[in-house]
């Protein structure tokens, strides 16, 4: 296998995905298979190739610096699991 369960634990933390210990083996197995598939790419030489980020070679359009949005706080905060006095609440942020 290309990955160890420890690798997967690290990646999962980076992605902030909680993974139960009993699922770890299965994820490690599946991800290793996926990586196997991806290493097929190495069969092609791409040394002189320019990477392609977008299908069309266009440039970014720019918008005029105008304020177009109005306050919709209540509307948006209806969706939030925990708000108080207009702010979103989360467990204590430690800096």
């Amino acid at each position: 296998m290309l990955l160890t369960t420890n690798d997967v634990k690290k990646i999962a933390y980076l992605a902030r995905l909680g993974i139960e210990d009993h699922d770890l083996e299965a994820f490690t197995h599946d991800l290793s298979n996926m990586l196997n598939l991806m290493t097929q790419m190495n069969s092609i030489n791409t040394d002189e190739v320019e990477p392609m980020a977008h299908p069309l070679p266009q440039s970014q359009r720019l918008r005029a610096d105008n304020v177009t949005e109005t306050n919709q706080r209540e509307h948006f905060q209806h969706l939030a699991p925990h708000v108080e006095d207009g702010v979103y609440l989360v467990p204590k942020v430690i800096e």
Partner: peptide
């Protein structure tokens, strides 16, 4: 006047999340 990627105002000191 507006944000870098949206049309919301950048004025300082507004009520939170408005």
């Amino acid at each position: 006047h507006s944000k870098i990627f949206s049309g919301a105002a950048t004025a300082y000191g507004a009520q939170p999340n408005t």
